[in-house]
Design a protein around this nucleic acid. Structure first.
Lengths: 176, 176
DNA sequence: TCCATCATGTAAACAGTTACATGATTGC
DNA sequence: GCAATCATGTAACTGTTTACATGATGGA
């Protein structure tokens, strides 16, 4: 058994926190996240849940009386163990190194663009990153305990990106 | 034409900076990156380069005299325009929101784990994140100008993650 | 009554990974 | 001579996305 993949871990984690909940609620959690990394599309979530169910990591109720055909999901004991292993793998170097930032990826290509493009890049990126920071902060609302501190990580990162782009812009204006 | 995808933009950007260069050099740039987000595997890079060449975004020299069959890549004028558009899209909200952090993804699941698992998580994650910060800092060596400032973003983010996990650990020890 | 949202899913296409496979060159 | 690295690529698999498709519920 090769352990949970990234999206699998995220999804089992969401179900564990919200159980019992519908697949739709899992999708909402993904689509409402400040990060767009996971789309939360039906095409990704439903087949994934089917796999998790076949593997015995989650269970689903069948309620014929429910008009919408709602199915309530829960994490099985096996799923809890898998989720714990996945969660505690945060100490592995390759997990800590698993990060991605689409703005930073673009910044490298500025080297071969003229100064006016560089400034435009930094001004527009700073604006977008500031908006993103506001979104991340708004996402703290109503959270407490572990959930609050976990979401706080997103705010720390968003703030760091704003600080970085501010310094970047200053350097560009100084003729870098 | 739907614009460059994420990996396409990254790869065309690498070629633009290093041209003329081999596909292998592009792979090395990806595998040597502190982030493990892109594997830089042959199976991802070679088919991608073939697509880019077919689309006329990059060109490759054929040198029969070269024993290793080396092919030198360059970005075409069309590719430069596509790269510029991709780079300047950093101001779009969905690009600024395109971030991912595997440690933070795991942190949410702590809610349903006992205190001793929470502390273990934070201690081990802090250790791994500190190592990652050191790696990010080492990646600044020998860089200057735009490249330095772009790489600096990785250091800012890595530092923010360390700061966050430090606070997280303190909160957990305080009985959160 | 109508619209937004809740709620389920499927199909085709594509992207990316792992694993496999081969051979040349360089430095010790 | 040998090992590490340079350098190319392919095949099978899996996961994810986009787009399509249907219907129920609740509130204005």
């Amino acid at each position: 058994m090769p352990g949970l993949s990234e999206l699998e871990g995220v999804v089992v984690g969401i179900i564990r926190i919200k159980e019992p909940c519908t697949a739709y609620a899992v999708r909402r959690e993904l689509t409402d996240s400040p990060s767009t990394h996971w789309s939360g599309s039906a095409g990704s979530v439903y087949p994934l849940l089917e796999r998790l169910q076949r593997a015995g990591l989650i269970t689903a109720t069948e309620d014929k009386a429910d008009g919408r055909g709602r199915r309530l999901l829960k994490v099985s004991p096996l799923g809890r163990r898998a989720l714990r292993t996945w969660t505690l793998s945060a100490g592995k170097p390759e997990v800590a190194a698993s990060v991605f930032d689409a703005v930073r990826a673009r910044a490298f290509a500025l080297k071969k663009l003229p100064p006016r493009d560089r400034e435009r890049f930094a001004v527009e990126a700073l604006d977008a990153l500031s908006d993103f920071l506001a979104t991340a902060k708004a996402h703290l609302e109503g959270r407490e305990g572990i959930e609050y501190f976990a979401a706080l990580g997103g705010v720390y990162e968003a703030q760091a990106r704003v600080d970085w782009m501010t310094e970047f812009l200053a350097a560009i204006r100084a003729g870098q």
